[in-house]
Design a binder for these strands. Structure first.
Length: 328
DNA sequence: GGGACACCTTGGTT
DNA sequence: AAACCAAGGTGTC
């Protein structure tokens, strides 16, 4: 039913799936017992956490397998079933998974540096180990974070599920859950009544943002561009580029820059980080305002970037998750 | 140019 | 139970 299990040679200190995958970087991971399942580069990936060996193994589903194709007749066949593709060769899956987890970046040394620069980080670091940034597909990341505005992780997840099930391409079923590709911008842009449909799918006022941005990106891509071309450009350029899209403000732009465009210094200031700064860092920042504004946003983001250094965004992820789990 | 204000919808709290 | 608030904010006056 699947290709062979392979090893993601990263220790628990380097990556903790249970912290990273459900905490609002990607909104597409499903937990199945000790496994985490999602789609990377249009292939279903199953990650298995093996605490006994302090290692993670993974495999990909073979879409042609009977076990994974049983459910076809039960779905509305609006999308013509394209002939099942064969799974990508193992080396491609390997490189995709390692790329997705930013595996060449060593977390241990980053934690050391953050701890040395910031007393508060040092204080919480022991309880929040293995928190790293994923390196996500640019369009999926951009689209997901447009949906994140004034919203909760739970509902964002639901919206993205609906989006993929409606506009994505079916890949395979695993443990009774169907997996789909993330729809391309051009698919959304050319789909009739897309914005209205998105509202029906629970997007609320974000439906227009997603549709307009999909159209803008599709047009731009039609001229021979690719979002991933922006990788490697300076943070300010990436940010300016992203801010042109409807539904993208400073916070969303910083998230996408950090999580998809390799801008490791980008520090998104969301409501949780804002709260924790008020509570823990405020005396140092002379930050008195109670509400967010563009100026306050820029000040805070810059302050934390200076405090944590070139990989400040990675420290932000740790702080963010610690705040999400404050009660635990 | 900054500061209210509205915005879809869901889930949790009072 | 009805009202209210917050949720990884943004666009618009």
């Amino acid at each position: 039913m699947s290709t062979a299990w392979r090893q993601l040679r990263m220790s628990g200190k380097e990556v903790s799936l249970d912290w990273i995958l459900p905490s609002g970087q990607s909104f597409r991971w499903k937990r199945e017992g000790e496994e985490w399942v999602s789609v990377i580069q249009d292939a279903v990936i199953i990650l298995r956490n093996d605490p006994s060996t302090d290692n993670i193994t993974y495999c990909t589903l073979d879409p042609r397998s009977p076990e994974t194709t049983i459910k076809h007749e039960s779905k509305p066949a609006q999308i013509p079933p394209s002939p099942p593709k064969s799974p990508p060769p193992a080396y491609e899956i390997d490189s995709a998974v390692h790329d997705y987890f930013n595996s060449s970046i060593k977390l241990a040394s980053l934690y050391r540096e953050f701890g040395a620069r910031d007393k508060y980080f040092k204080q919480i670091a022991d309880r929040f180990v293995g928190i790293r940034m994923l390196r996500q597909d640019p369009w999926e990341c951009l689209c997901s974070f447009i949906c994140s505005s004034n919203n909760s992780i739970k509902r964002i997840t639901q919206m993205i599920d609906n989006l993929c099930a409606t506009y994505g391409t079916y890949i395979a079923t695993y443990k009774d859950i169907d997996y789909y590709t993330f729809p391309r911008p051009s698919t959304l842009a050319s789909s009739p009544n897309c914005a209205a449909k998105l509202r029906e799918l629970g997007f609320g006022y974000r439906a227009d943002y997603v549709y307009k941005t999909a159209k803008a990106v599709a047009d731009w891509e039609a001229q021979g561009n690719q979002l991933s071309d922006m990788r490697g450009k300076p943070y300010d350029d990436v940010r300016e580029f992203l801010l042109q899209f409807t539904g993208v403000g400073p916070k969303v732009a910083d998230c996408v820059a950090l999580m998809s465009f390799d801008c490791h210094e980008s520090v998104p200031i969301d409501t949780h980080v804002f709260n924790i700064v008020k509570r823990r860092y405020s005396p140092k920042t002379k930050m008195v305002s109670k509400t967010m504004s563009k100026v306050v946003y820029d000040e805070l983001s810059l302050y934390l970037r200076d405090l944590w250094g070139p990989y400040a965004g990675w420290a932000q992820a740790v702080i963010f998750i610690s705040e999400l789990n404050r009660d635990k």
